[in-house]
Design a protein around this nucleic acid. Structure first.
Length: 201
DNA sequence: GTCGCTGATGCTATAGCACC
DNA sequence: GGTGCTATAGCATCAGCGAC
């Protein structure tokens, strides 16, 4: 497995916190379980993750998220290829269900920027709102209650690029145009996390 | 080398909305 | 009307690229 693939795998692990290798493989798509096993073994030896064996199920937990499995190559390539939005996109694909704060923290950008990109993706139907943040109750009651979004179109590892009339998806090489903007709040029946939701109608 | 143009990115300010 | 949250337009900054 190449270094970028390992980096993607390590990022996926840090986001998931507790994971199986199958989950990581599904998240980053471009690797094999054998490669991940070898990588995980290395991380366990370095005490970056802990292994839990539960009968035939093996899961891992990140115990040192700060660990850097890769030697810092000189930063001549200073400008990171993985921009904030690229990291956001990757986080959204891995988490599947997320809120703006989660994505912002995992991608290391501001919440406002995360919301900005999320709203664009929402307009083209790549994600949709699973649960709106409550607007009633005390501050304490609302603490931790944020708008939850769900990934609807996971087209591939490359982030969709916002354009004037929509977003260009490098994974499908297609320009997806914005849906008609509707500021009115759409009342969606409460959906429990993990439940499918048809948003096309 | 540098100048100008263009596009990508991220942030801020503000409008819109729901609720009290 | 006041408050709090979300969505979005607009702006600043930076990098890439071509022309000269």
């Amino acid at each position: 497995m190449s270094r970028p693939q390992l980096k993607d795998a390590w990022q996926a692990m840090r986001i998931l916190k507790t994971f199986s290798l199958q989950q990581v493989r599904n998240a980053i798509e471009h690797t094999t379980l054998d490669s991940l096993k070898a990588f995980a073994k290395r991380l366990v030896a370095a005490k970056a993750i802990a292994e839990h064996v539960d009968y035939e199920h093996i899961t891992y937990t990140v115990i040192n998220a700060e660990y850097k499995p890769f030697k810092q190559v000189n930063n001549s390539d200073a400008k990171q290829k993985n921009s904030g939005r690229q990291r956001m996109w990757q986080s959204m694909r891995i988490l599947n269900e997320f809120d703006a704060g989660q994505v912002a923290s995992t991608a290391d950008i501001s919440v406002a920027s995360a919301r900005s990109y999320i709203s664009i993706l929402k307009k083209v139907g790549y994600i949709f709102v699973v649960k709106s943040a409550p607007r009633t109750g005390s501050v304490i009651e609302r603490a931790g209650e944020a708008t939850i979004y769900r990934m609807l179109k996971n087209t591939g590892p490359k982030r969709p690029i916002p354009k004037a009339t929509g977003v260009f998806d490098p994974n499908t090489n297609e320009l997806v145009e914005f849906n008609a903007v509707q500021r009115k709040t759409v009342k969606i029946a409460p959906v429990t996390l993990g439940e499918a939701h048809d948003f096309n109608n």
